[in-house]
């Protein structure tokens, strides 16, 4: 399960603390530190530890949203061009034998690059 974690400025090392407290290994898919928007990390945790980790993070002052899945693909808008394929850092997109676009949402780290690169607005974030 993917969690989007927003941290407040000058916060403590929350992720490290949660790993130590819960013993759950957390994989950081991507992290961003921005002067205006604060710090944000997308982390991957085992499904069964999802509630434990998010509760612990919240108690330490982080905002946590649970992301059910990766990028959303609207098949009605998609024309199967493939503009998204080469911009994705995780190889989420590919063609099948009939040149139809396949989307492996499990690999997605929600970086959002493909959203801009889709000429048909067929890709979006869930929340």
């Amino acid at each position: 399960m993917k969690l989007l974690v927003r941290l407040i400025h000058d916060s403590k090392p929350i992720i490290a603390q949660v790993v130590r407290d819960t013993g759950v290994l957390i994989n950081v898919d991507r992290a961003r530190s921005d002067a205006h928007e604060g710090e944000e990390a997308l982390v991957d945790v085992p499904d069964e530890s999802c509630m434990l980790v998010s509760e612990r993070m919240r108690s330490l002052g982080a905002e946590v949203s649970i992301l059910e899945e990766g990028i959303r693909h609207d098949e009605d808008e998609c024309v199967d061009c493939g503009a998204c394929i080469s911009v994705c850092p995780k190889e989420v997109f590919s063609f099948d034998d009939d040149w139809k676009l396949q989307v492996m949402t499990k690999r997605c780290i929600l970086c959002g690059r493909c959203i801009q690169s889709c000429p048909h607005a067929a890709l979006s974030l869930n929340n």
Partner: peptide, 14 residues
């Protein structure tokens, strides 16, 4: 090795 992207749709061309 560099990945390529088509902007036109080969599926629709077919």
């Amino acid at each position: 090795e560099v990945r390529t992207s088509s902007l036109s749709s080969y599926r629709r061309a077919k």
